[in-house]
Write a protein that binds this DNA or RNA. Structure first.
Lengths: 205, 205
DNA sequence: AAAATTTGTGAAGGTTTGCTCACATTTTAG
DNA sequence: CTAAAATGTGAGCAAACCTTCACAAATTTT
């Protein structure tokens, strides 16, 4: 691997459709290998082999192995980003409780597929990375706005910031916990509902 | 690396004091290298070099590289374990709000040193690992008991389980978030207090 | 149809890595 | 003091790794 910050030599960007497919095949393959064979088996040559492309093709679009991780992480963040934006849009007129339930639902669904994978990615790609920070800031802003516009008694900016910070993390981490660490005997639906209730309890206090 | 489950050939266990010191030097060095040089620089030879022991000594106590990670993770879990046990003991007679504040405080303090490191460890060592699971179960049990004995209106077992699940994760992840993702302008003390308030709001609802 | 561009190929170089083993040294036990 | 056990050593090997490069094939442009 290589988690150091390195020169960002930009490689060729895919122009034709087949090139885009190559890039996607690579990223999908990384996920598949991580799930089926584990972190240790994730070598550049194996990625190329399983993806059905040559190792040379891989290096046409990724300057080094670490860049593949970054791209994968970005793809995941973008997914979540769109999902949350859509949920916020869809519930623009909904009251707070409906919105929060929907947000928890969306986050849980987004992580139900490969929760462990994205935990590993989140830990592997540092928080300072450009995309990660931007995402966190946008998320925080979106929550702040959503909450602010639904409060009966307006809060001070500073209080709002605190509230948004807590709510953002509650939604994110509880969703994560619901998927990944829910004890046996507790259904997904129940866990989701309880997580939403926790968020709402805080917001109403 | 090697995250696959492998044969657990047990190596020599340190009997003398200097052997224990060797083992600790190795573990401390891993942390130091991770912080200063990053994940990529963490090779067995480099660990030995920085720790001031020979590579041979390292392999006297760790069957392979992965085992070093596991040991480090275990050490961290044990620390948290003792800390939480102590906090629960110390506040055996305290009301819920004092206890929760103390718990958040303890968790935050425990992660203030190297938050990123332990995030990486948590993601690297799978949740199914023996120690990790045991810890989660103990933690859950402790929270359940602490909450249960302080409720005025007793809850059903099933409800209690849910509550303990949520509270455990709130304390854990909010503490983590307070340290690692707190937005600039929000003090540690303020963030801690707000996290505790969130937990209490949920418990009172 | 030719030229230019984009995409795909994979053998192999040069480096690095995890780990062993035969042996030296230190500590404990008898 | 001697034997046995525990601990420490580090050169070096076999394996694995990332990445390059010279070139071929496919596609687009002129």
């Amino acid at each position: 691997m290589g988690l150091k910050s390195s020169e960002k030599r930009t490689r060729r960007r895919p122009k034709q459709r087949r090139a885009v497919e190559t890039v996607n095949a690579v990223l999908d393959t990384v996920i598949r290998i991580l799930k089926r064979e584990g972190f240790a088996a994730l070598t550049t040559n194996r990625i190329a082999e399983v993806a059905g492309v040559s190792i040379g093709s891989l290096y046409q679009y990724f300057p080094d192995k670490q860049a593949i991780f970054a791209a994968l992480h970005k793809r995941h963040i973008d997914e979540i980003d769109h999902l949350l934006a859509a949920t916020l849009m869809e519930h623009a007129g909904s009251p707070l409780d409906r919105l929060m339930r929907a947000l928890v639902e969306a986050m849980v669904d987004a992580h139900t597929q490969d929760p462990e994978l994205y935990e590993l990615l989140a830990a592997t790609v540092p928080h300072r990375a450009a995309g990660t920070r931007d995402f966190a800031i946008r998320l925080h802003g979106a929550f702040l706005h959503a909450i602010s516009s639904r409060l009966k008694k307006p809060k001070k900016r500073r209080e709002l910031e605190k509230t948004a910070f807590i709510v953002t993390h509650m939604v994110e981490s509880l969703s994560h916990g619901v998927v990944l660490r829910r004890p046996p005997g507790l259904s997904l639906a129940e866990a989701k509902e309880e997580a939403a209730r926790a968020v709402l309890a805080y917001l109403r206090a």
